[in-house]
Design a protein around this nucleic acid. Structure first.
Lengths: 218, 218, 218, 218
DNA sequence: AATGAATGAGGGTTCATTCAT
DNA sequence: TATGAATGAACCCTCATTCAT
């Protein structure tokens, strides 16, 4: 493998090919590369318009090779969703760990979630094509999404009780800002003028603002 | 056609079959029904998982029949996007016509847009599957979307100048609330507990709030 | 379609193409032709080595056409087995209807079954590749096969009780002559020197003889 | 290799792994184990549904290892057929060596053949999937089968001449009882209630009976 | 106007086989 | 000797699209 060839590959494909030989970790690294390359392609072209041949080509491998790391195309999509919802769970857990008021936690979650989904490794995987998954996979993912939604609504209710924010319908409010947050991956790109952290901060502020905090907070 | 049969069809399919015979408008009516039925299916199952057979079945017609009203499946998708962006343009035009401050216009646009996209006939067509259109179609749609975005940013800048809202990055702010608005169609359903008008009002309030209006406004 | 082309097709393919247009029976005729052509090919090359392209070519149609008549390749195999076991059931029912001693019925079954499976339309479908069916399909077929086996064993026991035949293990005896009968389709061919009826008669005699009837019968 | 591991392997796999190192016979032993393991799998699942991975797994070796002992999967099938026809030849030769009347020899052949094909090592290889072999291999096997058939027919003619059995069509008679005999491997299993020797004896009796021997024989 | 029939093109998946180590 | 890795070839199946009537 020449340097020239390396230059034609991107970070993800590189991770695949530079995975340490023989290591038992290599399989995990390659599997992750595969998920990421696929997720990025899914984001660009959608699940159905992305062929396994294309994914293989992006990784500079052959199509049957992919089947050493995943069982089916469906499984790739499921793993993408799993990574995405996992990032949301992480972000929420971290925000809770850091403590603070209910509104602080919501803001922390928003910022942490966007941070994760806009990193090179995460940007690819936030998807909304639920309908392309099997019903079982969809249910598994939705269950975890619902758990997060539920916790966010509780925090909203708490923030209202504490007088941090004006009264509102918690369900719709969560839908509102989660829509905004999940929309990021539809226009965000690594090479844009703004990096993910900046967007995360700005959006977290908008989330807080959208909940009409009492002036006292300002 | 018996009444019995009619009962098994919904509003959209009915429009197709009750279109006045011989009228030159019949073609337009049926074409619209087709777009709507297709758009609704696209929203439920995605573009690629929706087959023309299904669309035809929903309209109680045969598949080749569809080709008398559209040239291809791609064209149907394009028309869906055209309707959606058209609703946004209408909502913006109406808000501008009604006048008021820059922030008033933004709020008016948000409410009007959601109103339109959540009606029985509109809810189906708000899509985000750009990647399933031809590049040319995508460009045509994006151009109009960009025009709206541009106007919204101008209004935001104006609102800042007027001291209506706190300073912010207009581009990101528009992305923020447009993401929230476009997200509605992913969870909204006709038979939900809340109707479209209510959501439109609540979301418009969140949009305004997210822009951190000065207290004086409150 | 010219006569020349017709000459290049066989009886089964012809049935497909001469099926009366528009008739609702056409679908049934073609489906049957498909099953038969496939069954014949399965008999020659085995299930897995027979491609749908080949079956389609034998019928002078295209591959996707086949899917208007069956849901999958597996279904074709299942239908072949269904036809085969159906012939056995028919033969048994007919033999029972005709009455006579237990041994008469067994002989009648043997002759009737071979008769059916060696006709132009039946010869193709006697298969033994159970392992290529889904477990569910296998179970459905085996259930019916077992019912026939059970009845044959009962008849054998009866024949022993009546002193028609010498004592023997009914289970093994049935395995013995059913093996011989099912083996026919492995070497029988339409254009052989002997026709099916003759084979049926000869084999039925061997079946009776193999059960060592008492001399009194001779 | 620990004893523990040995416990998880069966007789055939064991033969492979305990083959004496360095010995030139090791190659032969392993090759035979491979054929037998494969044959057993072919009998259970059919040729095409049996993958080399499965065969390798049954032998607790890796797939490329197999290629040190056979040139291709086709060759394995050919060897299975060679073993099976070899058993028939052996059984016939033994029956002839033992002498006796023509009918005695036929009975001896039947019993000896079933005996061989139902031993643990032989049961696997009696196959009927001719169509999965190359035409050349098929021809080689068929040639030997035909030689056996021819000799059996001669014996039948002799038995008729000698008045041992009633007149019959020798060709069909051989087809009859060979069908029954070859059918054994489709339902026989090592762990069944009956062992091979018993079946061989019972079936040999049925073979004799099926040829309607003159009463004088009884 | 309307439809049943037909098909070309393309994608996911499997597996025998080879190669580098 | 032994094996993990890699791939070419083939097949089933789907579906948008067209044609004959």
């Amino acid at each position: 493998m020449t340097d020239q060839e390396n230059d034609n590959r991107d970070e993800i494909a590189d991770a695949w090919h530079t995975a340490p030989e023989g290591s038992s970790r290599r399989h995990d690294i390659r599997r992750l590369s595969l998920i990421q390359a696929a997720g990025r392609a899914f984001g660009r072209k959608g699940f159905h318009r992305t062929t396994l041949d294309e994914i293989a080509r992006e990784l500079s491998v052959t199509k049957p090779m992919l089947y050493r790391y995943v069982r089916s195309k469906q499984e790739i999509l499921y793993e993408c969703h799993r990574m995405a919802v996992g990032m949301a769970e992480e972000a929420l857990a971290e925000a809770e760990r850091r403590g603070g008021s209910a509104l602080d936690r919501i803001a922390g979650f928003a910022e942490g979630y966007i941070d994760r989904t806009t990193t090179a490794l995460g940007t690819c995987v936030v998807l909304t094509e639920y309908y392309s998954m099997t019903p079982e996979d969809t249910e598994r993912i939705q269950q975890r999404r619902r758990a997060i939604d539920t916790r966010l609504r509780e925090l909203l209710a708490q923030a209202m009780d504490d007088g941090e924010i004006a009264p509102c319908d918690p369900k719709l409010a969560v839908f509102f800002f989660m829509g905004a947050i999940n929309g990021v991956n539809r226009w965000f790109s690594d090479d844009g003028e703004r990096d993910g952290n900046e967007i995360a901060r700005v959006f977290a502020d908008h989330v807080v603002a959208s909940l009409s905090p009492r002036k006292s907070r300002m």
